[in-house]
Design a protein around this nucleic acid. Sequence first.
RNA 1: CUGCUCGAGGGC
Length: 331
Amino acid sequence: LASLNAMLSAYAMNDELSQAKSMFQWMPVWNLISWNTLLRVLASSGSLAGARELLDTMPDHDLVAVTSMLTAYAQQGHLEEAKNIFDAIPDPDTVSWNAMLAAYAQNGHLSGAKKLFDSMPVRNLSSWNSMISVCGQLDDVFAAESIFHSMHSWDMVSLNALLTAYAQEGHLLKAEQLFEELPVTNLVSSTCMISLYGVNGLVEDAERVFYALPEVDMFTWSSMVSVYGMNGYQREAEAMFHEMPQQSLVSATVMITAYVQQGKLEKAKCVFDRMARHDPVSSSALLAGYVANGYTEQARKVFEEMPYRCKSSWNAMLSADAEKGDLLQAL
RNA sequence: CUGCUCGAGGGC
């Protein structure tokens, strides 16, 4: 059973939801770990409703299951739900506390994060790492450094959190210095540097980091395409986009944005139409392009076909209205 | 064998 569970877990890592589901059904017996693993697959695939339903039908809940659910809500931006789950846990362990801490941090509730951190009965490395990230989001590099230096032990995540804090505040030199001093880096550090170089117009530096990597992933690929795009290197962006072994919502959106910036709306539309699915971000990327160029009709069409409407989509639409003095018409 | 911390995309 343990080895079947391990296989199930491998599907979870690769986000292979349907494979995981059918494997689960074929398993002759299940234990709590099997259920928890399936829950995790559902949760990380973004299927909140499915995860919730599974949680309610599972024979038992333990802390692991509930914490997975908490994280799922947090990652979809449902901070209140996450907090409700946390509050209902009678005796949370450090991982659950950390999950709640991360929920605050990832949703921008930085004061909530600080408060929770202060009230934690036990903190571990993950807790401290989250706080470095919180300081980074507050643009308080000094506090991030202080935390880092006060830590008795640190790991790659701590270093990357600090690196990200530097990047966020635009401390190119500090980030560069840290990155170059590190004996070991990983894809997270490299992606951070690639996009930092990109926003500073240092395309060749970004390339140097990218091409030195022994292997790349979706994040590094997308960020390199983005660097090309935001610096007007349309052909390079295109080439890299098409060389990518796999596409994702993000990589396609990056490419759409690159075309939009060049005013190549037909090409942007073409990428958009080839996407397996759309989300509010990919739709608003194209929408913004139409709006900026006064194509109200096309903008409205994209808007109406959006998978679900959210506040951010309305913002793009409203700015179209303002520019055209055509408020109700655009909708 | 399962849960927590760091990196990529639009608008504001």
